[in-house]
Amino acid sequence: MGKDGYIQRKKSIRCRQFIFYLTLLAGFSSFNVLAEYGDVVLNRNAELNDMRPVVFPHWFHRIRFRCKVCHHELGFEMRAGSNDINMGDIIDGKFCGMCHNGETAWSVDNCDLCHSGKPGLKTGIHGSNETSGPGRW
């Protein structure tokens, strides 16, 4: 962005602020507390194949691993639903299977520990209550 663009931005902020606060008020008054903060539901194909949706708890994993392990080393994209995760690949040691292989963590045999979600849930971040989660404004 050039210098002019930056100055333009500086000027337009005043007016935007007002609309912004209004939006914010509207947003925060529709709280929707679900799950633990950061829980991700993965249900692109699970339920279609008669398995419960998968619940991935961020809080549990970040006690043990920094974000960079999954989102840099192992290559998970930071957008719920954007990784093409499927069971065959997990068994072959990709995605969750990079750790859930009986070495770093318990193996894929424990179907129910991952497939523990309530039927009918959609893929997406669920616990991030305070702002109804990103993308929902």
Partner: peptide, 15 residues
């Protein structure tokens, strides 16, 4: 928590 299935066998095993 409205995310986990209360009838799932994982309840009681998951932390």
């Amino acid at each position: 928590d409205e995310v986990h299935d209360p009838t799932s066998p994982a309840i009681g095993i998951l932390q």
